[in-house]
């Protein structure tokens, strides 16, 4: 959905968050058992959730399973959504809890065992992203982070969420979000070292 975005954004740039009114309308209909509204909601969130989940569970089949489980909860409990948070926050929080449980159930390693293979230069599906050294380093560096740290990085940089909303999704204090981000950025920047300047 937004993986191709590479623009450098500042505070004044409008963000592409799903339209909140449209979300409320859809979830109200889903709460009444409207399957078509559910499908619209599913299509709207599918890509963003897949991206988010792929940072929490490593196997694509598990991403798909957790995504379906998440949306099943949305279908079954849509009527109980009270609008106390944004719908996207509610859905991402469900996805996060589901993913962490799935990772435990499947005993997924925190570190990415495939990182070494990818770093060796072997052709991979990510080649379109670029085969430059800096991309490989970033991928490796991200893989070395814990799922919780990756989640904060991805929710901030890709999904463009504020730290308060991220804290709601992850169910942790805002200071934990800030601290995780601090250590994650330090790790990423250390790994990229001078290569980051190529992007500036």
């Amino acid at each position: 959905m937004g993986a191709e975005r590479t623009d450098s954004r500042g505070p004044s740039v409008a963000r592409e968050q799903p339209d909140a009114r449209s979300d409320l309308r859809l979830i109200a209909l889903v709460g009444e058992g409207d399957g078509e509204a559910f499908h619209e909601l599913y299509r709207k969130y599918q890509s963003r959730l897949a991206r988010f989940l792929s940072n929490l569970v490593r196997h694509p089949h598990l991403v798909e399973e957790v995504l379906d489980d998440t949306m099943m909860v949305v279908w079954e409990r849509g009527g109980s959504f009270k609008g106390e948070s944004k719908l996207s926050t509610w859905i991402f929080a469900i996805a996060y809890r589901k993913a962490m449980r799935a990772a435990l159930r499947h005993d997924e390693p925190v570190e990415d065992k495939e990182a070494e293979v990818r770093a060796s230069g072997e052709a991979s599906p990510e080649d379109e992203y670029g085969s430059s050294k800096v991309h490989g380093l970033l991928r490796e560096a991200m893989a070395e982070l814990s799922p919780e740290h990756r989640a904060v990085v991805d929710l901030t940089y890709f999904h463009e969420l504020g730290y308060r909303e991220i804290a709601e999704i992850l169910g942790c204090p805002v200071d934990t979000v800030k601290t995780r981000m601090f250590y994650a950025r330090r790790h990423l920047r250390r790994c990229l070292a001078g290569d980051l300047s190529d992007w500036i």
Binding site: S8, A50, D154, F158, W199
Partner: peptide
């Protein structure tokens, strides 16, 4: 800003 742009441009495996 550079780091944000790079991470945002990273593809994920579950497209």
């Amino acid at each position: 800003s550079a780091l944000r742009a790079m991470v945002a441009a990273m593809p994920h495996d579950a497209t």
